[in-house]
């Protein structure tokens, strides 16, 4: 039983590390500001969830698990808010979103 939880938590941690890395790669590879935001939200959303849940499984039922839940909830509430503030600030100060294709898709 214990080892099953261990294996699961290692898998979650490895997947989380992979997602975090892919997000960092995306932040470097993607061509403009708004598309880079998607890469950041990849690490902020999926990477955070996977890594913190993976650690939580290792911690078991303890004070550390409660603190980890608090960190997870705090990050999941604040990171979209910060992303929205960033995107909105960029939009309002005139960074153009998208390319020519954007106009056609708009309705």
């Amino acid at each position: 039983m214990q080892s099953a939880v261990d294996v699961l938590s290692w898998i979650l941690l490895a997947a989380g590390g992979a997602f975090v890395f892919v997000g960092g790669l995306g932040a470097l590879r993607l061509p403009d500001f708004y598309t880079r935001m998607h890469a950041a939200s990849l690490t902020d959303g999926m990477g955070t969830i996977l890594i913190l849940v993976g650690i939580m499984l290792q911690a078991g039922w303890s004070l550390a698990a409660i603190k980890l839940i608090a960190i997870l909830v705090c990050l999941l509430l604040t990171s979209p808010t910060a992303s929205y503030a960033l995107a909105n600030a960029a939009l309002l100060s005139g960074v153009e979103p998208g390319n020519s294709r954007a106009g056609k898709a708009e309705n």
Binding site: G23, A27, F33, A40, L75, L86, A90, S93
Partner: peptide, 14 residues
């Protein structure tokens, strides 16, 4: 742009 830098700093922080 400044916003790219802020995005990176935010990512660095999380």
């Amino acid at each position: 742009s400044v916003y790219d830098r802020m995005l990176a700093v935010n990512m660095f922080g999380t």
